[in-house]
Design a protein around this nucleic acid. Sequence first.
RNA 1: GGGCCGCUAGCUCAGCUGGUAGAGCAACGCCCUUUUAAGGCGUGGGUCGAAGGUUCGAAUCCUUCGCGGCUCACCA
Length: 632
Amino acid sequence: MSDKPLTEFRKIRIAKAEKLVEMGFNPYPSKCSRTHYAKTITDNYDALEGKTVTVAGRLMSWRKHGALTFGHIQDQSGRIQLYIRRDILQDTDQSRGNIGYAHLKLIEVGDFVEAAGRVTRTERGEISVRPDTIRLITKSIRPLPEKRSGLKDREAVLRRRYLDTTMQPHKREAFENISRMLFAIRTFFNERGFLEFHTPVLQPLYGGGTAKPFTTHVNALGCDVYLAISHELYLKRLIAAGFDRVYTIGKYFRNEGIDRSHHPEFSMIETMTAYENYEYNMDLVEDLFRYVAQNVFGRTVFRVNGREVDFGRPWKRISMVDAVREVTGVDFSKCTSVDEANARLSAMGINEPQASAGLCLVKAFEEKVEATLISPTLVYGHPMDISPLAKPMDDNPDYAERFEIFIGGMECGDNWSEQNDPVRLLETWKSKQQSLMLAAEEIHPLDYDFIEVMEYGMPPTTGIGPGIERMAMLFTEQDNIDDVIFFPLMRPVLSPLNAEIYGIDERVYVERVAEGDILITMDEFVSLLEDGIISPPASRVTVRPYLRFWGDLGRGRTSGYLEIEGLIKDKRLRVVGFAPAPGKALHDLTDTRKLRAVIESSVRDGIGGYFPDCEIRIHGVILLHDPRLHAG
RNA sequence: GGGCCGCUAGCUCAGCUGGUAGAGCAACGCCCUUUUAAGGCGUGGGUCGAAGGUUCGAAUCCUUCGCGGCUCACCA
C-alpha cells in the first residue's frame, strides 16, 4: 500500500534527515557563518572575483550534470548561483558538517544550505560561488510550490504567505517598505520633539470612537475588558500629565466588517500636540505624508486606483460646506431647517431623511463628494453633531475644528482640536448616549474617569490619526488591505491531509453557532417535544449528527449535538448534549455503516415518534475534534 | 447579510452535452563536466472541499453545508 504523494515525500525527506544523523551530521545545526549576502556579491563582482565567501540561504533550484551541479541559493537580498564541481568540492567531513559530492543527494531544493568558495563566473557568464564546502543548515520536509507559478490560489497565498514570499521574492518589497515607512514615521515625529508611548490595548472601557469592540476577560481582576478601538483618550491623559507632544503607533481592534479596506485588527499613528489647534495638524499631516514619500520611496507621485496622486504639491484645503457646494451646487450652510436640508438631499437623489441639517451635509458629502477626492485633500469644518470630541469653531459654532484626509477617494485620517471643556464634554456625551440608545439600542460607555481628567484640566490640544494600512496601500500601490497585512485574519482550518500527517483520525470542524441558530440542550428539546410545543411546519426535517469521541477507542466517551433543519421556520436548531445509544460502545470508527445505523436508530427513536407524518432525513455522521486541542 | 465565481495530486492547471481521473512542475530510480523552466529513459502518486439526492452509472446534474475570492450593503 503506497502513501499519498505528500505523505510519501515527507517520509522520504525525514528518512534523509535520519540518514544524515546516522552519518554523524546534524540536519538542524544552530549556527552558520555567512560572510556575504547574494546581492553583495553580484553587485561587487569586480572587487570580489576570486575571493572566498560564504553564502547561506534556501536552495531554490538544483541541476545535476554528473560531475557538475548547479543550483541557486536565495537569501533575504536575492539569489546567487552555486557552481559545484566534483573535483573541487571537499569530501564529506562530519566533524565540520561538510557534505561531499558523493552525498549531495542528501540535500535538495527547499533545504537551507551554506556554501563556502570562490566567487567566479560560469561559461555562460553568471556570477556564481564555486563551493569548496557545502553544509546543510536546515532540512525541509515539505515540497515547495511549483517553481514557475508559485502559489496562485488566493487563499493559499494568505494562509501561507511565507511560501508566497519565498517563491516570489518581489512580493516581500511591499512589506519591507512598510517597515521602512514605520521607521520614517517615527523619525519624523521624534525629530519634531514627540515622545512615543505605548498606550493600553486592554481597556476597561472603549472610547474615542463608536465601533463595536472585542471583549475579553481578565482572570486576575475578575472583570471584562475591551481591546482598544482607539487610543486617543489615553494620549489625552498623557497631555494632561504634562507631556506636550506624544504619539503612539498602536493596534486598533474593531469587531466589524472585513473587506478590501477594512481589517478587524489594524494600526494607526495617533498624535496629541498641546498648545496647538487643528490648523497646525493640517501642516503636520501634509509634511508627514511628503516626508514618508520622499524618504522611503524617493518620489511623490503614486498611482492610486489607476490615477496619479501627487503628495508633493500643496494639498487642497476646503470646508465640507464648500466641497459639497462645488460638486452639487447646494449650499447646506444656507439651509435654515432640517426639512429644507432633507429636501435638498432628496433633490440630489438621496432619499434617506437625516435628523439634522448637519447630518444632511455629511450624507451629501459622503455620497457625492468623497469618491471624487483623488488628490490629497483636507476637508474641514464638520458639523458639531458628528464631532462630540472636537471643539467648535470660534466664528461658527455649528461646525467643528476638525478635518479629514482624503486621498484616492479614500478616507485616510481624522483630526481635530480636542474638546477640553469638561462640562460641555459631559453634556455632549450624555445626550449622544441617549440618542444612540434610542436609535441603535446600543449603550456606549461614558468614561467618567476621562471626564475627571478633563476637570483637572488639559491644555488646548490637537491630534491626528492616519491609518497605517491605508497609508501603506497608497504608498505601495496595493488596492487590497490583505496585501499590506502579512498575516490577515482568517478562519482556522485543518486540512484532512494535515489531520492525517499529524495523527488526527477524524475530520476537524470548528464548532460554532451561526447567528440566528437556536441552541438548546437535549433535555429542553425532549420536554418541548413532549409538550407538543415544537412541531414541524414542513413535511421534511433534516438532521445532521455531529459527534465527538473522547479518550481511547472502545473505552472513551461520546458527546455531540444534532443540527436540525425544518422544525422551526428559517432557523436551525442545535441540540447539544446528544448522547446516542448510552452505554453502547460506538468507537468502532472503521465500521462506518454500523456507526451510522446506531446513530440513525437513536435519532429516529428519539424524535421520530413525535411527528409520524414527517419525513426525517438523517445525514451522515460528522465527526468532531476539539479544535483547541489541535490548533497549530 | 445579498449577488456572482471558485475548490480535481504537494503546487499550477486540463477534464466538452453524465460513461474506467490527465498533463507539467515537484518526488523516486538510472545516464550526463557549463546548466539556469537544463535534458534523456523509466516509476510511483487522487475520498475530484463535505454530506445527501437523481441515475444502471456522478469530478460532471440537483440540494444543503464548509472554506475562499470578487462585488454590493452595513460599519469608521
